[in-house]
Amino acid sequence: MLDHSIITDISNNGGFVNDDNKGSTAKKKQQVRRVQNVVPLFISHILDCTDEEFNLCGMPVQIASVVGVLRNFEVQTTKATCIIEDNSASIKAIMWLEVDNESVTPALPPVKENCYVRVFGSIRNQDDEKILMILKMLPVDDLNLITNHLLEIVQTKLYAERLAEGRLPTSDVSMASTSTTTDNSEGLKPIQVRIINLLKPIKTKSGLSRSEILQHFGPQAREAEVALDFLLDEGHVYTTVDTDHYKATDAD
């Protein structure tokens, strides 16, 4: 889980939904929350896309996952800026910071400049330049993750190309999963851990539907539904064939 609260509801203007408008935007925020998917990409894929809304071979992408070297990491009062560089290209990235109520020092992810990081972010156009708005950034402690990321990119692009050519039914398309640590040491609630453990062994491309998940919780179904939305916001689960089917990002 994140050391600082960063994955929230993303507004259409490239920022974050203002909590002051919760009453008028609650329904919209609920819809936005459930359409986030995570797609592994090369940075060149982002830069080469000329469409206003980023897509991969016509397939919409809500959250990009990139692995690269962290360069020029500069921390300011409310945000951090950096360059993420992989073997294909480099891109400017911005991460908004949250300051603890008891401290004036912003909470930062445990990353180091000139080391590999894994970044989850949304893609924005700013002054005719593509920017990666960081939702989550993690250090890469195992170099096998880099190889795995490359394989995920190849697999996802093949699916997108086949879909664009009409050679693959939409129902067979699933975003390649992305790995995040989901053990109890991160402070997840027991019901959140139960949902993750329920999804981890699922091997089908579609995963489990919301109703299939909730039926395991009986009278706790409402609490489980809130927990499922939280896990989706935090990147522990992701949507697959539609907005009501889920898989764990850290699948077995």
Rank of each mutant, 00 (worst) to 15 (best):
V111D: 03
E152M: 09
K92R: 09
S206W: 05
E152F: 10
I6W: 03
F42T: 03
A80G: 11
A107G: 02
I94H: 14
D142P: 00
P109L: 05
C57K: 02
L198M: 14
S206A: 14
L214C: 08
A224N: 00
V241C: 12
A160L: 06
N55S: 15
K79A: 11
K130L: 04
A164H: 13
T170L: 06
I94K: 03
S103W: 11
V61F: 14
V17A: 12
D100G: 13
L231I: 02
T170I: 02
D20Q: 14
E165H: 13
T181L: 10
Y116N: 04
S171P: 00
K29V: 12
V104Y: 13
S122I: 01
E74A: 05
G58R: 01
K130R: 15
I123A: 03
D100M: 08
E225M: 04
E102N: 15
S171Y: 02
Y246N: 09
K29M: 14
Q76Y: 15
R222W: 03
I134R: 00
L231W: 06
I202F: 06
I202V: 15
I153K: 15
T77G: 11
K189N: 13
S179Q: 09
F54K: 01
T156W: 04
T25R: 13
I196N: 04
L47P: 03
A80K: 10
S179K: 10
H4D: 04
A221D: 08
R167A: 13
R34W: 10
S122P: 03
L214T: 06
D252L: 07
T239P: 06
D86V: 11
H236T: 01
L97W: 07
R33G: 07
D128W: 11
E85C: 10
I46G: 10
L138M: 14
N21G: 07
N55M: 02
G166V: 04
N125G: 08
S206C: 11
N184W: 12
E165F: 11
N87V: 08
V226K: 13
A227I: 05
T156V: 04
Q215D: 13
M175E: 07
E225F: 03
V241Y: 06
N21E: 09
L232F: 03
A221F: 07
I63H: 00
M137S: 06
R124D: 09
K205N: 12
A93D: 02
E234W: 08
L188W: 06
P219S: 10
N37I: 07
E53D: 15
M1L: 08
D127F: 11
L56W: 05
T239H: 08
N72S: 14
P110W: 08
S11V: 00
K79R: 14
I146C: 02
T170G: 09
M137D: 09
S206P: 05
V67T: 14
D100R: 12
L158G: 07
K29P: 01
M95I: 10
P109M: 04
L145V: 08
V32G: 05
G207Y: 01
G23I: 06
K22G: 07
T77C: 03
N55W: 03
N101Y: 15
V38E: 11
F54P: 01
L163Q: 11
D100I: 02
I153T: 09
